[in-house]
Design a protein around this nucleic acid. Structure first.
Length: 509
RNA sequence: GGCCUCAUCGUCUAACGGUUAGGACGCCAGGUUUUCAUCCUGGCAAUAGGGGUUCGAUUCCCCUUGAGGCUACCA
Protein backbone atom coordinates (compact mmCIF):
# COMPACT_ATOMS: atom_id res chain seq x y z
CA UNK A 1 0.00 0.00 0.00
CA UNK A 2 1.57 3.32 -1.03
CA UNK A 3 2.12 5.81 1.73
CA UNK A 4 0.11 8.95 1.28
CA UNK A 5 2.40 11.92 1.74
CA UNK A 6 -0.33 14.47 2.11
CA UNK A 7 -2.11 15.21 5.34
CA UNK A 8 -4.62 12.72 6.65
CA UNK A 9 -8.10 14.18 6.62
CA UNK A 10 -11.17 12.13 7.44
CA UNK A 11 -14.77 13.10 7.72
CA UNK A 12 -18.01 11.99 9.18
CA UNK A 13 -20.89 12.91 6.91
CA UNK A 14 -24.29 12.14 8.40
CA UNK A 15 -27.72 12.96 7.13
CA UNK A 16 -29.82 15.01 9.51
CA UNK A 17 -32.69 12.61 9.90
CA UNK A 18 -33.52 13.17 13.53
CA UNK A 19 -31.52 10.70 15.53
CA UNK A 20 -27.99 9.43 15.81
CA UNK A 21 -27.66 5.75 15.02
CA UNK A 22 -25.16 3.97 17.24
CA UNK A 23 -23.60 2.48 14.11
CA UNK A 24 -22.90 5.97 12.84
CA UNK A 25 -21.10 6.73 16.05
CA UNK A 26 -18.83 3.78 15.49
CA UNK A 27 -18.06 4.93 11.95
CA UNK A 28 -17.37 8.40 13.26
CA UNK A 29 -15.22 7.05 16.08
CA UNK A 30 -13.00 5.12 13.70
CA UNK A 31 -12.65 8.16 11.44
CA UNK A 32 -11.87 10.31 14.42
CA UNK A 33 -9.30 7.93 15.86
CA UNK A 34 -7.61 7.47 12.51
CA UNK A 35 -7.32 11.22 12.02
CA UNK A 36 -6.01 11.81 15.54
CA UNK A 37 -3.60 8.92 15.30
CA UNK A 38 -2.09 10.38 12.14
CA UNK A 39 -2.08 13.96 13.37
CA UNK A 40 -4.68 14.74 10.77
CA UNK A 41 -8.02 16.52 10.67
CA UNK A 42 -11.47 15.22 11.37
CA UNK A 43 -14.35 17.03 9.75
CA UNK A 44 -18.08 16.95 10.18
CA UNK A 45 -20.12 17.58 7.07
CA UNK A 46 -23.89 17.54 6.83
CA UNK A 47 -25.39 15.66 3.90
CA UNK A 48 -28.87 17.03 3.62
CA UNK A 49 -29.56 16.53 -0.04
CA UNK A 50 -32.68 14.48 0.51
CA UNK A 51 -35.24 17.15 1.19
CA UNK A 52 -37.94 14.62 1.98
CA UNK A 53 -36.19 13.12 4.97
CA UNK A 54 -35.11 16.32 6.62
CA UNK A 55 -35.97 16.68 10.29
CA UNK A 56 -36.12 20.08 11.91
CA UNK A 57 -33.42 20.73 14.50
CA UNK A 58 -31.56 17.53 13.86
CA UNK A 59 -28.28 19.17 12.85
CA UNK A 60 -28.11 20.84 16.23
CA UNK A 61 -29.04 17.61 17.99
CA UNK A 62 -26.42 15.71 16.05
CA UNK A 63 -23.63 18.15 16.77
CA UNK A 64 -24.54 18.24 20.44
CA UNK A 65 -24.56 14.47 20.67
CA UNK A 66 -21.09 14.34 19.17
CA UNK A 67 -19.96 16.99 21.56
CA UNK A 68 -21.20 14.92 24.50
CA UNK A 69 -19.38 11.91 23.12
CA UNK A 70 -16.23 13.96 22.83
CA UNK A 71 -15.83 13.37 19.12
CA UNK A 72 -15.05 16.94 18.30
CA UNK A 73 -14.48 17.96 14.72
CA UNK A 74 -11.59 20.20 13.79
CA UNK A 75 -13.46 21.54 10.87
CA UNK A 76 -16.94 21.63 9.45
CA UNK A 77 -20.10 21.95 11.48
CA UNK A 78 -19.08 22.40 15.08
CA UNK A 79 -20.47 23.41 18.44
CA UNK A 80 -19.08 26.70 19.67
CA UNK A 81 -18.25 27.50 23.26
CA UNK A 82 -21.47 29.45 23.55
CA UNK A 83 -23.42 26.30 22.67
CA UNK A 84 -24.36 27.51 19.20
CA UNK A 85 -23.82 25.49 16.06
CA UNK A 86 -21.47 27.09 13.56
CA UNK A 87 -19.26 26.29 10.61
CA UNK A 88 -15.53 26.43 10.82
CA UNK A 89 -12.82 25.93 8.21
CA UNK A 90 -11.62 27.09 4.80
CA UNK A 91 -13.44 24.55 2.69
CA UNK A 92 -17.02 25.41 3.53
CA UNK A 93 -19.85 25.64 3.51
CA UNK A 94 -20.01 22.23 5.15
CA UNK A 95 -23.72 21.78 4.73
CA UNK A 96 -24.49 20.37 1.33
CA UNK A 97 -27.71 22.28 0.80
CA UNK A 98 -25.58 25.43 0.93
CA UNK A 99 -23.28 24.16 -1.82
CA UNK A 100 -25.75 23.83 -4.68
CA UNK A 101 -23.90 26.26 -6.94
CA UNK A 102 -20.73 24.26 -6.53
CA UNK A 103 -22.43 21.08 -7.66
CA UNK A 104 -23.99 22.91 -10.59
CA UNK A 105 -20.64 24.04 -11.87
CA UNK A 106 -19.11 20.60 -11.55
CA UNK A 107 -22.03 18.85 -13.19
CA UNK A 108 -21.61 21.25 -16.08
CA UNK A 109 -18.02 20.13 -16.44
CA UNK A 110 -19.14 16.53 -16.64
CA UNK A 111 -21.80 17.39 -19.18
CA UNK A 112 -19.26 19.26 -21.30
CA UNK A 113 -16.87 16.34 -21.19
CA UNK A 114 -19.69 13.98 -22.16
CA UNK A 115 -19.33 12.01 -18.95
CA UNK A 116 -22.90 12.82 -17.98
CA UNK A 117 -26.15 13.36 -19.80
CA UNK A 118 -29.64 14.74 -19.41
CA UNK A 119 -32.32 12.17 -18.83
CA UNK A 120 -35.94 13.13 -19.37
CA UNK A 121 -37.46 9.77 -18.61
CA UNK A 122 -40.48 9.90 -16.37
CA UNK A 123 -40.70 7.95 -13.13
CA UNK A 124 -43.38 5.83 -14.74
CA UNK A 125 -41.16 4.88 -17.64
CA UNK A 126 -38.30 4.01 -15.31
CA UNK A 127 -40.60 1.86 -13.28
CA UNK A 128 -41.76 0.12 -16.41
CA UNK A 129 -38.22 -0.50 -17.62
CA UNK A 130 -37.29 -1.98 -14.28
CA UNK A 131 -40.22 -4.35 -14.30
CA UNK A 132 -39.56 -5.49 -17.84
CA UNK A 133 -35.93 -6.20 -17.12
CA UNK A 134 -36.83 -8.05 -13.95
CA UNK A 135 -39.12 -10.29 -15.97
CA UNK A 136 -36.26 -11.02 -18.34
CA UNK A 137 -34.11 -11.79 -15.27
CA UNK A 138 -31.80 -8.95 -16.14
CA UNK A 139 -30.35 -6.55 -13.57
CA UNK A 140 -32.94 -3.77 -13.13
CA UNK A 141 -30.79 -1.02 -14.55
CA UNK A 142 -31.56 2.07 -16.56
CA UNK A 143 -31.83 1.17 -20.24
CA UNK A 144 -29.88 4.15 -21.53
CA UNK A 145 -32.87 5.64 -23.31
CA UNK A 146 -31.57 9.20 -23.03
CA UNK A 147 -27.90 8.39 -23.20
CA UNK A 148 -27.46 9.60 -26.74
CA UNK A 149 -30.06 12.30 -27.24
CA UNK A 150 -29.12 14.86 -29.87
CA UNK A 151 -28.34 18.40 -28.92
CA UNK A 152 -31.54 19.63 -30.51
CA UNK A 153 -33.65 17.07 -28.68
CA UNK A 154 -32.14 18.11 -25.39
CA UNK A 155 -32.69 21.79 -26.09
CA UNK A 156 -36.24 21.15 -27.15
CA UNK A 157 -37.00 19.21 -23.98
CA UNK A 158 -35.35 21.85 -21.82
CA UNK A 159 -37.34 24.59 -23.57
CA UNK A 160 -40.53 22.64 -22.91
CA UNK A 161 -39.54 22.48 -19.27
CA UNK A 162 -39.71 18.72 -19.12
CA UNK A 163 -38.35 17.61 -15.76
CA UNK A 164 -34.95 16.00 -16.01
CA UNK A 165 -32.18 14.42 -14.05
CA UNK A 166 -28.53 14.20 -14.97
CA UNK A 167 -27.04 10.76 -15.19
CA UNK A 168 -23.51 9.58 -15.12
CA UNK A 169 -22.26 7.90 -18.26
CA UNK A 170 -20.71 4.61 -17.22
CA UNK A 171 -18.42 2.86 -19.72
CA UNK A 172 -19.92 -0.27 -21.27
CA UNK A 173 -16.68 -2.16 -21.21
CA UNK A 174 -13.83 -2.84 -18.87
CA UNK A 175 -13.93 -2.95 -15.14
CA UNK A 176 -13.29 -0.71 -12.20
CA UNK A 177 -11.19 -1.89 -9.34
CA UNK A 178 -9.80 -0.50 -6.16
CA UNK A 179 -7.97 -1.52 -3.05
CA UNK A 180 -10.13 -1.23 0.03
CA UNK A 181 -8.16 -0.80 3.24
CA UNK A 182 -10.42 -3.31 4.97
CA UNK A 183 -11.73 -5.60 2.27
CA UNK A 184 -8.78 -5.65 -0.07
CA UNK A 185 -9.09 -5.78 -3.83
CA UNK A 186 -12.58 -5.13 -5.20
CA UNK A 187 -13.21 -5.46 -8.91
CA UNK A 188 -16.51 -4.87 -10.68
CA UNK A 189 -17.40 -5.04 -14.36
CA UNK A 190 -18.48 -1.66 -15.67
CA UNK A 191 -21.36 -3.15 -17.64
CA UNK A 192 -22.99 -4.01 -14.30
CA UNK A 193 -22.85 -0.47 -13.01
CA UNK A 194 -25.97 1.58 -13.55
CA UNK A 195 -25.95 5.06 -15.08
CA UNK A 196 -26.27 6.65 -11.69
CA UNK A 197 -28.39 9.77 -11.27
CA UNK A 198 -26.08 12.59 -10.23
CA UNK A 199 -28.47 15.51 -10.13
CA UNK A 200 -32.08 15.09 -9.16
CA UNK A 201 -34.94 16.92 -10.80
CA UNK A 202 -35.23 19.23 -7.81
CA UNK A 203 -31.74 20.53 -8.53
CA UNK A 204 -30.15 18.74 -5.59
CA UNK A 205 -27.27 16.35 -6.11
CA UNK A 206 -27.49 12.72 -5.09
CA UNK A 207 -25.21 11.30 -2.41
CA UNK A 208 -22.89 9.82 -5.01
CA UNK A 209 -22.19 13.12 -6.67
CA UNK A 210 -22.13 15.50 -3.73
CA UNK A 211 -20.03 13.13 -1.74
CA UNK A 212 -17.31 12.85 -4.35
CA UNK A 213 -17.22 16.56 -5.11
CA UNK A 214 -17.08 17.49 -1.45
CA UNK A 215 -14.56 14.87 -0.44
CA UNK A 216 -12.27 16.15 -3.15
CA UNK A 217 -12.80 19.82 -2.46
CA UNK A 218 -12.36 19.28 1.26
CA UNK A 219 -9.20 17.29 0.60
CA UNK A 220 -10.36 14.15 2.32
CA UNK A 221 -7.58 11.57 2.23
CA UNK A 222 -9.37 8.56 3.71
CA UNK A 223 -13.02 7.75 3.29
CA UNK A 224 -14.11 5.64 6.22
CA UNK A 225 -17.74 4.64 5.89
CA UNK A 226 -20.18 1.75 6.19
CA UNK A 227 -20.02 -1.40 4.12
CA UNK A 228 -23.31 -0.52 2.47
CA UNK A 229 -21.28 1.79 0.22
CA UNK A 230 -18.96 -0.87 -1.02
CA UNK A 231 -21.00 -1.77 -4.12
CA UNK A 232 -21.31 1.85 -5.23
CA UNK A 233 -17.68 2.74 -4.70
CA UNK A 234 -16.78 2.00 -8.35
CA UNK A 235 -19.17 4.76 -9.38
CA UNK A 236 -17.32 7.11 -7.09
CA UNK A 237 -13.94 6.01 -8.38
CA UNK A 238 -15.12 6.62 -11.93
CA UNK A 239 -16.19 10.14 -10.98
CA UNK A 240 -12.75 10.90 -9.56
CA UNK A 241 -11.30 9.69 -12.84
CA UNK A 242 -13.72 11.77 -14.93
CA UNK A 243 -12.64 14.85 -13.03
CA UNK A 244 -9.00 13.86 -13.12
CA UNK A 245 -8.92 14.00 -9.35
CA UNK A 246 -6.74 11.94 -7.12
CA UNK A 247 -8.74 9.07 -5.68
CA UNK A 248 -8.74 8.93 -1.90
CA UNK A 249 -8.24 5.75 0.08
CA UNK A 250 -11.33 3.80 1.04
CA UNK A 251 -11.95 1.85 4.20
CA UNK A 252 -15.36 0.25 4.42
CA UNK A 253 -16.58 -0.91 7.78
CA UNK A 254 -18.62 -4.06 8.34
CA UNK A 255 -22.14 -3.34 9.49
CA UNK A 256 -23.41 -3.63 13.03
CA UNK A 257 -26.02 -6.38 13.21
CA UNK A 258 -29.30 -7.17 14.93
CA UNK A 259 -29.38 -10.43 16.91
CA UNK A 260 -30.85 -12.07 13.81
CA UNK A 261 -27.80 -10.79 11.88
CA UNK A 262 -29.67 -8.32 9.74
CA UNK A 263 -28.47 -4.74 9.45
CA UNK A 264 -28.85 -3.10 12.84
CA UNK A 265 -32.11 -1.23 12.88
CA UNK A 266 -34.38 0.47 15.32
CA UNK A 267 -37.10 -1.99 14.55
CA UNK A 268 -35.33 -4.62 16.59
CA UNK A 269 -34.20 -2.60 19.55
CA UNK A 270 -32.75 0.60 20.73
CA UNK A 271 -30.07 1.98 18.44
CA UNK A 272 -30.43 5.67 19.19
CA UNK A 273 -27.26 6.96 20.77
CA UNK A 274 -29.27 9.51 22.71
CA UNK A 275 -31.24 6.87 24.54
CA UNK A 276 -28.07 5.13 25.70
CA UNK A 277 -26.88 8.44 27.02
CA UNK A 278 -30.23 9.01 28.70
CA UNK A 279 -30.08 5.66 30.44
CA UNK A 280 -26.81 6.64 31.99
CA UNK A 281 -24.27 4.92 29.86
CA UNK A 282 -21.16 7.07 30.01
CA UNK A 283 -19.87 8.52 26.74
CA UNK A 284 -16.44 6.99 27.23
CA UNK A 285 -17.98 3.59 27.99
CA UNK A 286 -20.13 3.75 24.88
CA UNK A 287 -17.11 4.60 22.76
CA UNK A 288 -15.05 1.87 24.40
CA UNK A 289 -17.80 -0.64 23.74
CA UNK A 290 -18.39 0.17 20.09
CA UNK A 291 -14.67 0.45 19.47
CA UNK A 292 -14.46 -3.27 20.14
CA UNK A 293 -17.34 -4.08 17.82
CA UNK A 294 -15.31 -4.73 14.72
CA UNK A 295 -11.85 -3.73 15.82
CA UNK A 296 -9.40 -5.26 18.24
CA UNK A 297 -5.96 -4.27 19.45
CA UNK A 298 -4.48 -7.78 18.97
CA UNK A 299 -3.78 -7.82 22.67
CA UNK A 300 -6.03 -8.76 25.55
CA UNK A 301 -6.67 -5.20 26.65
CA UNK A 302 -10.29 -4.17 26.68
CA UNK A 303 -10.62 -0.92 28.56
CA UNK A 304 -9.24 2.08 26.75
CA UNK A 305 -9.23 5.77 27.49
CA UNK A 306 -9.68 7.92 24.43
CA UNK A 307 -5.94 8.63 24.42
CA UNK A 308 -5.20 4.93 24.50
CA UNK A 309 -7.66 4.35 21.68
CA UNK A 310 -5.86 6.92 19.56
CA UNK A 311 -2.54 5.33 20.33
CA UNK A 312 -3.63 1.77 19.57
CA UNK A 313 -6.08 2.28 16.76
CA UNK A 314 -5.13 0.97 13.39
CA UNK A 315 -7.19 0.28 10.28
CA UNK A 316 -5.54 -3.11 9.99
CA UNK A 317 -7.27 -4.27 13.16
CA UNK A 318 -10.71 -3.92 11.61
CA UNK A 319 -12.66 -7.11 10.94
CA UNK A 320 -14.43 -7.94 7.73
CA UNK A 321 -17.53 -9.43 9.25
CA UNK A 322 -20.36 -7.66 10.99
CA UNK A 323 -20.68 -7.74 14.75
CA UNK A 324 -23.94 -8.34 16.55
CA UNK A 325 -24.84 -5.37 18.68
CA UNK A 326 -25.36 -7.01 22.03
CA UNK A 327 -25.27 -4.63 24.97
CA UNK A 328 -24.52 -7.12 27.75
CA UNK A 329 -20.89 -6.23 27.57
CA UNK A 330 -21.71 -2.55 27.48
CA UNK A 331 -23.22 -2.94 30.94
CA UNK A 332 -20.01 -4.46 32.17
CA UNK A 333 -17.79 -1.82 30.58
CA UNK A 334 -20.01 0.94 31.90
CA UNK A 335 -19.77 -0.56 35.38
CA UNK A 336 -16.00 -0.55 35.09
CA UNK A 337 -15.99 3.12 34.22
CA UNK A 338 -18.36 3.98 37.03
CA UNK A 339 -16.17 2.21 39.55
CA UNK A 340 -13.08 4.05 38.38
CA UNK A 341 -14.80 7.41 38.38
CA UNK A 342 -14.15 10.14 40.89
CA UNK A 343 -16.95 10.05 43.47
CA UNK A 344 -17.73 13.75 43.25
CA UNK A 345 -18.06 13.51 39.50
CA UNK A 346 -20.26 10.43 39.79
CA UNK A 347 -22.44 12.19 42.32
CA UNK A 348 -22.92 15.12 39.98
CA UNK A 349 -23.88 12.77 37.19
CA UNK A 350 -26.32 10.87 39.39
CA UNK A 351 -28.06 13.94 40.80
CA UNK A 352 -30.26 14.55 37.74
CA UNK A 353 -31.52 10.97 37.92
CA UNK A 354 -32.46 11.43 41.56
CA UNK A 355 -34.21 14.67 40.71
CA UNK A 356 -36.12 13.02 37.92
CA UNK A 357 -37.14 10.22 40.28
CA UNK A 358 -38.53 12.82 42.67
CA UNK A 359 -36.09 12.02 45.46
CA UNK A 360 -34.27 15.31 45.57
CA UNK A 361 -34.89 18.83 44.42
CA UNK A 362 -32.56 21.71 43.87
CA UNK A 363 -33.86 24.72 45.75
CA UNK A 364 -33.60 28.26 44.45
CA UNK A 365 -30.63 28.94 46.71
CA UNK A 366 -28.81 25.95 45.22
CA UNK A 367 -29.25 23.67 48.21
CA UNK A 368 -30.52 20.15 47.77
CA UNK A 369 -33.65 19.01 49.51
CA UNK A 370 -34.74 15.48 50.15
CA UNK A 371 -38.19 15.72 48.61
CA UNK A 372 -39.59 12.92 50.74
CA UNK A 373 -38.50 14.14 54.16
CA UNK A 374 -37.92 17.81 53.32
CA UNK A 375 -34.49 17.63 54.90
CA UNK A 376 -31.68 19.60 53.37
CA UNK A 377 -28.85 17.37 52.32
CA UNK A 378 -25.47 18.76 51.48
CA UNK A 379 -23.32 17.55 48.64
CA UNK A 380 -21.04 15.62 51.01
CA UNK A 381 -23.97 13.61 52.27
CA UNK A 382 -25.14 12.95 48.75
CA UNK A 383 -21.67 11.77 47.87
CA UNK A 384 -21.79 9.31 50.76
CA UNK A 385 -25.11 7.99 49.56
CA UNK A 386 -23.80 7.54 46.04
CA UNK A 387 -20.67 5.87 47.37
CA UNK A 388 -22.87 3.07 48.68
CA UNK A 389 -23.73 2.17 45.11
CA UNK A 390 -20.59 3.03 43.18
CA UNK A 391 -19.32 -0.55 43.28
CA UNK A 392 -22.70 -1.93 42.42
CA UNK A 393 -24.29 0.10 39.65
CA UNK A 394 -24.10 -0.70 35.98
CA UNK A 395 -25.59 2.48 34.66
CA UNK A 396 -26.50 5.82 36.14
CA UNK A 397 -30.22 5.27 35.90
CA UNK A 398 -29.86 2.31 38.30
CA UNK A 399 -29.33 4.80 41.07
CA UNK A 400 -33.00 5.81 41.23
CA UNK A 401 -34.20 2.50 42.57
CA UNK A 402 -31.15 1.26 44.39
CA UNK A 403 -30.73 4.25 46.63
CA UNK A 404 -34.34 5.23 47.21
CA UNK A 405 -34.32 3.63 50.67
CA UNK A 406 -31.82 6.23 51.82
CA UNK A 407 -34.28 9.05 51.16
CA UNK A 408 -37.43 7.68 52.77
CA UNK A 409 -38.39 8.31 56.37
CA UNK A 410 -38.66 4.62 57.16
CA UNK A 411 -38.31 1.89 54.57
CA UNK A 412 -41.34 -0.27 53.98
CA UNK A 413 -41.01 -4.01 53.86
CA UNK A 414 -42.62 -7.22 55.08
CA UNK A 415 -41.69 -8.23 58.61
CA UNK A 416 -40.76 -11.70 57.35
CA UNK A 417 -37.91 -10.23 55.35
CA UNK A 418 -36.06 -9.64 58.60
CA UNK A 419 -35.59 -13.37 59.05
CA UNK A 420 -32.39 -14.84 57.76
CA UNK A 421 -32.43 -18.38 56.45
CA UNK A 422 -34.23 -20.63 58.92
CA UNK A 423 -34.77 -18.11 61.68
CA UNK A 424 -38.15 -16.51 62.40
CA UNK A 425 -38.97 -12.82 62.24
CA UNK A 426 -39.38 -12.81 66.00
CA UNK A 427 -35.93 -14.22 66.51
CA UNK A 428 -34.58 -11.60 64.17
CA UNK A 429 -36.27 -8.91 66.20
CA UNK A 430 -34.75 -10.29 69.36
CA UNK A 431 -31.32 -10.07 67.79
CA UNK A 432 -32.06 -6.54 66.73
CA UNK A 433 -32.89 -5.61 70.29
CA UNK A 434 -29.44 -6.70 71.36
CA UNK A 435 -27.91 -4.72 68.54
CA UNK A 436 -30.03 -1.71 69.37
CA UNK A 437 -28.83 -1.57 72.93
CA UNK A 438 -25.20 -1.70 71.88
CA UNK A 439 -25.67 0.76 69.06
CA UNK A 440 -27.09 3.27 71.51
CA UNK A 441 -23.87 3.17 73.49
CA UNK A 442 -21.71 4.14 70.56
CA UNK A 443 -20.79 7.76 70.26
CA UNK A 444 -22.14 9.51 67.19
CA UNK A 445 -18.65 10.31 65.96
CA UNK A 446 -17.61 6.68 66.24
CA UNK A 447 -20.40 5.57 63.98
CA UNK A 448 -18.12 4.09 61.34
CA UNK A 449 -17.72 0.71 59.63
CA UNK A 450 -14.72 -0.48 61.69
CA UNK A 451 -16.35 0.31 65.03
CA UNK A 452 -19.57 -1.32 63.98
CA UNK A 453 -17.71 -4.39 62.83
CA UNK A 454 -15.97 -4.64 66.19
CA UNK A 455 -19.29 -4.36 67.91
CA UNK A 456 -20.84 -7.15 65.89
CA UNK A 457 -17.81 -9.35 66.45
CA UNK A 458 -18.12 -8.79 70.17
CA UNK A 459 -21.82 -9.59 70.07
CA UNK A 460 -21.12 -12.78 68.19
CA UNK A 461 -18.88 -13.96 71.00
CA UNK A 462 -21.22 -12.86 73.74
CA UNK A 463 -24.39 -14.29 72.28
CA UNK A 464 -23.10 -17.19 70.22
CA UNK A 465 -25.06 -15.93 67.26
CA UNK A 466 -23.68 -16.23 63.74
CA UNK A 467 -22.72 -13.33 61.56
CA UNK A 468 -25.73 -13.79 59.35
CA UNK A 469 -28.12 -13.94 62.24
CA UNK A 470 -27.02 -10.51 63.31
CA UNK A 471 -26.16 -8.82 60.06
CA UNK A 472 -29.06 -9.86 57.89
CA UNK A 473 -31.74 -8.47 60.21
CA UNK A 474 -29.70 -5.35 60.76
CA UNK A 475 -29.24 -4.76 57.07
CA UNK A 476 -32.90 -5.33 56.26
CA UNK A 477 -34.00 -3.05 59.06
CA UNK A 478 -31.91 -0.29 57.52
CA UNK A 479 -32.64 -0.81 53.85
CA UNK A 480 -35.86 -2.76 53.76
CA UNK A 481 -34.40 -4.62 50.81
CA UNK A 482 -33.47 -8.16 49.99
CA UNK A 483 -30.39 -6.84 48.23
CA UNK A 484 -28.60 -3.72 49.31
CA UNK A 485 -25.24 -2.41 50.46
CA UNK A 486 -23.89 -3.73 53.76
CA UNK A 487 -25.34 -2.65 57.13
CA UNK A 488 -22.20 -0.93 58.40
CA UNK A 489 -21.92 1.25 55.36
CA UNK A 490 -25.59 2.15 55.42
CA UNK A 491 -25.51 2.87 59.13
CA UNK A 492 -22.49 5.09 58.72
CA UNK A 493 -24.14 7.18 56.05
CA UNK A 494 -27.47 7.23 57.88
CA UNK A 495 -25.90 8.37 61.15
CA UNK A 496 -26.72 7.22 64.63
CA UNK A 497 -30.13 8.77 65.02
CA UNK A 498 -31.65 7.46 61.83
CA UNK A 499 -30.04 4.09 62.25
CA UNK A 500 -31.55 3.64 65.68
CA UNK A 501 -34.90 4.79 64.41
CA UNK A 502 -34.90 2.18 61.68
CA UNK A 503 -33.75 -0.62 63.94
CA UNK A 504 -36.40 0.34 66.45
CA UNK A 505 -39.04 0.34 63.78
CA UNK A 506 -38.01 -3.18 62.82
CA UNK A 507 -38.19 -4.39 66.39
CA UNK A 508 -41.70 -3.02 66.77
CA UNK A 509 -43.02 -4.44 63.52
C1' G B 1 -32.87 -12.87 -10.07
C1' G B 2 -27.91 -10.17 -10.71
C1' C B 3 -23.52 -8.07 -8.41
C1' C B 4 -20.45 -7.58 -4.06
C1' U B 5 -19.02 -9.33 0.72
C1' C B 6 -18.56 -12.40 4.91
C1' A B 7 -18.29 -17.25 8.06
C1' U B 8 -13.93 -19.52 15.34
C1' C B 9 -17.69 -20.66 22.01
C1' G B 10 -24.68 -17.80 22.98
C1' U B 11 -22.12 -12.67 22.10
C1' C B 12 -17.38 -9.58 21.17
C1' U B 13 -12.91 -11.69 19.55
C1' A B 14 -7.20 -14.02 19.40
C1' A B 15 -4.27 -17.72 17.05
C1' C B 16 3.79 -16.06 10.64
C1' G B 17 0.48 -23.72 8.20
C1' G B 18 2.60 -26.92 13.74
C1' U B 19 -1.36 -24.29 20.40
C1' U B 20 -4.49 -29.13 25.17
C1' A B 21 -7.90 -23.56 19.58
C1' G B 22 -6.43 -18.31 23.91
C1' G B 23 -9.03 -13.97 26.21
C1' A B 24 -13.46 -11.06 27.50
C1' C B 25 -18.93 -10.58 28.42
C1' G B 26 -22.81 -13.68 29.95
C1' C B 27 -23.98 -18.30 32.47
C1' C B 28 -22.84 -22.17 36.41
C1' A B 29 -20.02 -23.68 40.95
C1' G B 30 -16.83 -22.43 45.07
C1' G B 31 -14.30 -18.70 48.10
C1' U B 32 -13.81 -13.53 50.09
C1' U B 33 -16.89 -11.96 58.11
C1' U B 34 -25.08 -11.36 56.12
C1' U B 35 -27.91 -10.38 50.81
C1' C B 36 -26.95 -8.46 45.95
C1' A B 37 -22.83 -6.44 43.65
C1' U B 38 -17.44 -6.09 43.58
C1' C B 39 -13.05 -9.10 43.88
C1' C B 40 -10.56 -14.12 43.49
C1' U B 41 -10.57 -19.38 41.78
C1' G B 42 -12.64 -23.03 38.77
C1' G B 43 -16.25 -24.94 35.06
C1' C B 44 -19.50 -25.28 30.58
C1' A B 45 -18.96 -23.61 25.62
C1' A B 46 -16.51 -22.74 18.96
C1' U B 47 -13.22 -23.58 13.90
C1' A B 48 -20.75 -24.47 9.03
C1' G B 49 -20.20 -28.99 5.50
C1' G B 50 -17.42 -31.43 1.57
C1' G B 51 -13.30 -31.76 -1.39
C1' G B 52 -8.30 -30.56 -2.47
C1' U B 53 -2.74 -28.52 -1.61
C1' U B 54 0.63 -30.08 2.42
C1' C B 55 4.41 -34.35 6.56
C1' G B 56 0.70 -31.18 8.95
C1' A B 57 -4.83 -27.04 7.80
C1' U B 58 -8.93 -22.49 12.00
C1' U B 59 -5.20 -20.59 8.67
C1' C B 60 -4.08 -21.48 1.39
C1' C B 61 -7.45 -23.07 -3.09
C1' C B 62 -12.32 -24.92 -5.00
C1' C B 63 -17.43 -26.30 -4.31
C1' U B 64 -21.78 -26.43 -1.23
C1' U B 65 -24.51 -24.26 2.59
C1' G B 66 -25.71 -20.19 5.47
C1' A B 67 -25.74 -14.94 6.44
C1' G B 68 -25.52 -9.87 5.06
C1' G B 69 -25.17 -5.61 1.80
C1' C B 70 -26.33 -3.32 -2.85
C1' U B 71 -29.49 -3.45 -7.00
C1' A B 72 -34.06 4.58 -5.90
C1' C B 73 -34.49 11.26 -8.61
C1' C B 74 -32.61 7.54 0.15
C1' A B 75 -28.35 8.14 2.31
Amino acid sequence: MPEIPKKVRTRFAPSPTGFVHIGSVRTALYSYLFARKNKGDFLLRIEDTDRTRLVEGSVEYLVKTFDILGLNADEGVILQNDGKVAQKGNFGPYIQSERLEIYQSYIKELLDKDYAYYCFCSQERLQQVREERQLQKLPPMYDGHCRNLSKTEIEKNLAEKIPFVIRMKIPKEGFTEFEDLVYGNIKIKNELIDDQVLMKSDGFPTYHFANVVDDHLMQISHIIRGEEWLPSTPKHILLYKYFNWETPQFAHLPLLLNPDKSKLSKRQGDVATGSFLDKGYLPEAILNFILLLGWNPKTEEEIFSIEEMIERFDLSGINKYGAVFNTEKLDWINGMYIRKMDLAKLTELCAPYLEKAGLIEKKADGRLENKLTKEIINFEKLKQIISLEQERMKKLSDIEESVRFMFVEIPEYEKELLAWKKMTAEEAQKNLEVIYVELEKIDEKDFAPEKLLNLINRLKEETGLSTGELLWPMRVSLSGLKNSPGPFEIATVLGKEKTLKRVKNAIEK
